[in-house]
Design a protein around this nucleic acid. Sequence first.
DNA 1: GATTAAAAATGTAATGATTACAAATTTGAA
DNA 2: TTCAAATTTGTAATCATTACATTTTTAATC
Lengths: 139, 139
Amino acid sequence: MDAFERLTRYGIKPSVQRMAIMEYLMTHRTHPTADEVYMALCGSMPTLSKTTVYNTLKLFVDQQAAQMLTIDEKNAHFDGDTSLHSHFLCRRCGRVHDLPYSGKKREARELLIEGHAVEEIHHYYKGICKECHEKENQN
Amino acid sequence: MDAFERLTRYGIKPSVQRMAIMEYLMTHRTHPTADEVYMALCGSMPTLSKTTVYNTLKLFVDQQAAQMLTIDEKNAHFDGDTSLHSHFLCRRCGRVHDLPYSGKKREARELLIEGHAVEEIHHYYKGICKECHEKENQN
DNA sequence: GATTAAAAATGTAATGATTACAAATTTGAA
DNA sequence: TTCAAATTTGTAATCATTACATTTTTAATC
């Protein structure tokens, strides 16, 4: 599925900017921040505005074509993969890695947990990632 | 256990301000923001500075006497309960509720998940809380 | 009690991510 | 082509958090 198809599937009217941003999210599974998306695209789209990036990412989240990760208190990260999975934030390199969802499968189907209507599940883990750990111990 | 004992147990030298902030966290399980802690205490401690609240909460987190929740993209929330449990953010009233930890018990004891060294686990759920849900449906 | 150095608290100013808003541009239907 | 709606853009504001310099407190020593 390409960016165009994904946008229309989520009820988002395609535009050059929206296509470029969705394309970036789909091809870069790095959970970028709004600023990282802007920096990556402004070279090939000189007129792109940072406001547009913020607005567009917000639109994607509202339409559930992407999710916003609040794993990092510094700034929001965005993930074009809306399937149920977990995330790991490395406090050394700052990258966000994917992890398989390890919660109870039952839970993911539940609408109510302790009486609360659950609409989003975020499982975050923080520490030192594999790559950073190996880099330190190879000396 | 009182605030004084809790501070010393975590290697934090007690002071009037630190005691007051820890006391507040221990008696108010509302997961307050730094600003909420400040607003609650500045009445009885007129000289209290907001910077002190920020510094002190950061100290608590560093010493693992409290945890910072990044469940809310607007601002950080703080929890004096460092035991393993989950959190629910209501997008209606904005409150953060406690939930029992529902992840695999195995996972909580693991140091490594997919090769990454896990130091913190945060399980966040978002939606409409029980109280807000009941309030809407009683009309 | 006086002295003093370290620790802690304070107030103000900066930072920086995000949002508000108004103007400019683009789109698509008529 | 015309025109209104949607989208994009740039700038200015907002606001949580942090940096930093100053003041105050603490606690040890004389």
